[in-house]
Design a protein around this nucleic acid. Sequence first.
DNA 1: GTCTATATGGAGATAGAC
DNA 2: GTCTATCTCCATATAGAC
Lengths: 207, 207
Amino acid sequence: MTATTHFNTKERILGAAEELFAQFGFAGTSLRQVTSRADVNIAAVNYHFGSKENLVNEVFRRRLDELSENRLKALKAALTESPGSLEAILAAFIEPALALTLDRHGGSAFVRVLARAYAEKNDRLRKFLSDNYGHVLRDFAKAIAACLPGLGKEELYWRLDFTAGALTYAMADFGLIKRPAGVSEQQHCERAARELIRFAAAGLRAV
Amino acid sequence: MTATTHFNTKERILGAAEELFAQFGFAGTSLRQVTSRADVNIAAVNYHFGSKENLVNEVFRRRLDELSENRLKALKAALTESPGSLEAILAAFIEPALALTLDRHGGSAFVRVLARAYAEKNDRLRKFLSDNYGHVLRDFAKAIAACLPGLGKEELYWRLDFTAGALTYAMADFGLIKRPAGVSEQQHCERAARELIRFAAAGLRAV
DNA sequence: GTCTATATGGAGATAGAC
DNA sequence: GTCTATCTCCATATAGAC
């Protein structure tokens, strides 16, 4: 990232789109809202991205390339430093997303965009995400399975799904309504991550 | 419900809207799509519902009035028949939604619409749901809290939130991708409910 | 690369005949 | 209650000057 990245037309469009997608959804956001918030001309979106669908994909790509890499690095570290620890694996998944939320460059909206994507049944978007980032989820699933040798394949499958739901929606709400007065954003998120890890680990281990 | 209910213009609009909202979201569905699928005239929506926003609200009201009543009845039964059982409380919440999914009158789409609502940050919709159905969630929260006397207030709060995320998203996917061949819809849903209850109960009880 | 201007279509909503 | 016809506005996308 160069020092001027956030002043590029392209980056400004991506940032504005991310915030609006988080708030209004993909269909609920018009390119006019995006270009107006980014303070660029309406024609700039089609010049730089070709179509609205491609803009959506690029909003994901900008963050997910890095997030996926960070998650896989953290997973690798967890598997060598804390072998057999379910909590360490869950932390490797959650903490990079947390870092994004606390990032000064507007990453907090992106976590909510991810939650939106989870609710979307749009096949094209799902295929884009699955093709490009599905391997990350598969690596985590394998690592978690290895921690729970007694668990049947079907049960594991269900529980991973529940865990994904809890993680996605909890993370999406990290920066939102629930922070009590006198608690900093950072403290609040760290608390949420800790609680989430305990909850999911217990659920995955349920007898 | 009369025998002709499903052939009324109003009911046909509500049914079509429910299915389309589940698939494309609220903003992603046009009233033209709705009236086309319901096979009624485009002007009928405004005649019967006044506006798109009000149509959305009525789609919720049609199912939530009955679902809420069933959930509260089941909660009352659980508290008297199985006092102190966390699993019974969770079942009282989940099983009426499950019955909707298995219902022959198209209730399965509605569970996905509920999941959409959870992702929406639309304040007007949230206020409508909170004003009309918030008391149901509060009653369940109280009953769950009573089962977990050792748990701090904040921790309880977090865990209820995670539980809601897992429930909502798991239920939304009940009828979708994951059913293996040779397993009936009903068996699949019952299995999901059982697993979900175990997962959530363990997470809520986590040490 | 960025602008103005515009093409083309679809959105929600309503008026008024039947 | 239901229809046709239409209003008004806004959507995505593009053409072509600068």
